[in-house]
Simulated assay, not measured.
Amino acid sequence: MKVLLVCAAGMSTSMLMKKMEEYAQANGIDLEINAQSFSDLKNPADAGYECILIGPQIAYQKDKVIKKAQGLPVDVIPMANYGRQNCPAIFEQLNGLLGK
């Protein structure tokens, strides 16, 4: 799966991205993941992403992300899962978005 994390500046989301990569590798999950700031978000479907997860700190931008998402599924990571870097719960969320 190819996932884009969208956040305000990329600091804490980069840490989550690394945790998710480690979790995916340890659990045999095929994952390509990138983090990008909201201001840099352009044509995510053209880049081959399957879905977009938004950091809770910019949940208020969800409607704007949806417009830029070109039909890709979009959801906000719950604050508790984001803060705890709860990879199992975040992968459940991803599977739900992707209908797996």
Rank of each mutant, 00 (worst) to 15 (best):
M1D: 14
K2C: 09
K2I: 08
V3W: 00
V3F: 00
L4D: 13
L4I: 14
L5T: 12
L5R: 07
V6S: 12
A8W: 01
A8H: 08
A8F: 06
A9R: 05
A9I: 05
G10W: 07
M11T: 15
S12M: 03
S12H: 04
T13H: 07
T13L: 04
S14Q: 07
S14G: 15
S14F: 02
L16Q: 14
M17A: 14
M17Y: 01
M17D: 11
M17H: 02
K19D: 11
K19G: 02
M20N: 02
E21R: 12
E21Q: 15
E22F: 00
E22K: 11
Y23H: 15
Y23C: 11
Q25H: 04
Q25C: 02
Q25K: 14
Q25G: 06
Q25N: 10
A26T: 14
A26W: 00
G28W: 04
G28V: 11
G28C: 06
G28Y: 05
I29K: 02
I29T: 04
D30I: 09
L31E: 13
E32L: 11
E32N: 14
I33Y: 03
I33H: 09
S37H: 05
S37C: 05
F38T: 13
S39A: 13
S39M: 10
S39F: 03
D40V: 00
D40F: 01
D40H: 07
L41W: 01
L41F: 05
P44T: 13
P44R: 06
P44I: 08
A45D: 08
A45C: 05
A47F: 03
G48I: 07
G48M: 10
G48H: 06
G48Q: 10
Y49A: 12
Y49P: 01
C51E: 13
I52L: 08
I52N: 02
I52F: 00
L53I: 11
L53W: 01
I54D: 03
I54F: 01
G55Q: 07
G55T: 11
P56F: 01
P56E: 06
P56L: 03
Q57I: 03
Q57S: 09
I58R: 09
I58V: 13
Y60L: 01
Q61Y: 10
K62T: 15
K62C: 05
K62L: 10
D63S: 14
D63K: 12
K64S: 15
K67V: 11
K67A: 15
K67R: 13
K68A: 15
K68T: 12
A69N: 11
A69Q: 12
A69H: 04
A69C: 09
A69M: 05
A69I: 13
Q70P: 01
Q70W: 00
G71L: 07
L72P: 03
P73S: 08
V74L: 06
P78M: 07
P78F: 07
P78Y: 04
A80H: 09
N81V: 00
Y82S: 08
G83A: 15
R84N: 14
R84K: 09
Q85I: 06
Q85W: 00
Q85P: 00
N86L: 02
N86I: 04
N86G: 05
N86T: 05
C87P: 06
C87A: 15
C87F: 03
A89G: 00
A89Q: 08
I90M: 08
F91S: 14
F91V: 13
E92F: 02
E92Y: 02
L94W: 02
N95A: 13
N95L: 03
L97Y: 05
L97F: 03
